[in-house]
Write a protein that binds this DNA or RNA. Structure first.
Lengths: 183, 183
DNA sequence: TTGATTTAGTTCTACATAGAACTATATAGT
DNA sequence: ACTATATAGTTCTATGTAGAACTAAATCAA
C-alpha cells in the first residue's frame, strides 16, 4: 500500500460519526449557487478515496491501482506503447510513468524494448504474466462490484455516467485544449 | 506540489487525444451489467485527479489540498479538535494527520495545545492566519467554480449530488459500520 | 493498588507523485 | 552540413500517504 493521493477535494465536512451530512448545508463563504459544485467535487473526492482503498485491498499480490491501471490500459487498447503516451493517457508526469513501468518490469508484468524507429524512445509490452495479473485483478473486484450494483441499483450508475462524463470532458478540455493534443 | 494520489480508479481507457471515449464501450472481461459501475468509478477517479490539480494550481502560497481540507474543516465545524478526530474525519492514518498538522503548524496556520483532559491528546486550533488562508483559498477557487457552473449548468451538479451522496454513504458504511463509529 | 489492555500521537520505512535538472537523440532552421 | 531547439526518458528532491513499531498516558480488571 502506498500514498493515497486520494485526498478528497475539499474535506469531509463532518467530524461526526461518518459523513452523513457531508456538505449538505450552506456554506456562507461560497457565492450563492456554488455550494452544489463544491459539494459535488467533495463527494467525488471522498468516493475516489474510499473506492481506491477497497479496490487495492482486493487486488492480487499487493498490486496497486496505478499498476493495474497501466496493465488494464495495455490490455484494452493494445500494448507496444511509449512511456510518453502512457504518461499522457494517465495525465501523470514522465517521471511518474518511468517509476510505474519500472515496478511493472520488476514484477515481470511488462517488457520494455527500445523503439526501433526512435533512438530516444522505449516501447512497453505486456507479458503473459501481465495479462493474467490484469484478469485476476478484474476477477477480484467483480464480487465487490456485484454487491454494489445489487444494493444500489444499476440505474443509479447508468444515470450518473453521462453526467460525470460531461464534467470529465470539460476538465479534460481545459487541461488539454485541442491545440496541445497529440495522436 | 506533491503526490497525486489522484490516481483514477481504473485508467483512462483511451490513449487517443484525450479521454473522449473513456470507458464507453463494452469490456468483455467484465460480467454484463458491471461496465457501468466500472465506468463510473473510472470517471470519478479522473475527475478527482483533474479537479485536484486545478484546485492546487490556484491555491495560495503553495498550499496543498490536504492542508486546505483541514483548515476548511476546522472553520466549518469548529476547531479545538484532536488529531484522532481529524484523522477519522478524513479517513487517513494517524501518521498522515500528524504530518499534515505539522505542516500547518510550520506555516503558522494552526496552533496545537495539549489536551487539558487527556495527557495523551493534543487539540488543534485555527490561528487568524489560518482562517485568512482558508478564506483566500476559497476566494481563489471561486472564479473557477463560476466558469464551471456557467458552462455546464448548475442543474447538472444538483442532479449529481444526491446520487453521489448515496454512493459515498454506502462506501462509508462499508468502511465504518455502525459498530465502529465514534462520536 | 497493581498489572494488562487500550488509546493518542510520533516515528520510520516504503511507496506514488510532481517538477526540475539532466542526457541522449531527433528535428528544424539556416 | 551545422547549429539550435524540441522531445523521450531518467534521476533527484520534496511532498502525501499507509502501516508498523514505538512511547506515553488512560482505562480496565483483579
Amino acid at each position: 500500500m502506498a500514498r493515497e493521493n486520494p485526498h478528497h477535494l475539499i474535506s469531509r465536512t463532518t467530524g461526526a460519526p461518518c459523513h452523513t451530512e457531508a456538505m449538505g448545508e450552506k456554506d456562507g463563504a461560497l457565492p450563492a449557487g456554488q455550494n452544489h459544485l463544491f459539494a459535488v467535487f467533495n463527494e467525488i473526492g471522498i468516493i475516489e478515496q474510499l473506492a481506491r482503498h477497497r479496490f487495492e485491498a482486493v487486488l492480487p499480490d499487493g498490486l496497486l491501482l496505478p499498476h493495474f491501471s497501466v496493465l488494464n490500459h495495455l490490455v484494452r487498447l493494445g500494448d507496444d506503447k511509449s512511456l510518453k503516451s502512457l504518461a499522457f493517457a494517465f495525465q501523470v508526469s514522465k517521471g511518474t510513468m518511468t517509476n510505474t513501468v519500472q515496478r511493472l518490469l520488476a514484477r515481470g508484468l511488462v517488457e520494455v524494448r527500445p523503439d526501433p524507429k526512435d533512438g530516444r524512445g522505449k516501447r512497453v509490452f505486456l507479458t503473459e504474466s501481465g495479462r493474467r495479473m490484469r484478469d485476476d485483478a478484474i476477477a477480484a473486484i467483480t464480487p465487490e462490484l456485484s454487491t454494489f450494483a445489487a444494493e444500489l441499483g444499476e440505474d443509479l450508475f447508468a444515470e450518473l455516467l453521462p453526467r460525470l462524463a460531461k464534467i470529465r470532458a470539460k476538465l479534460d478540455y481545459m487541461r488539454n485544449p485541442p491545440s496541445k493534443r497529440e495522436a
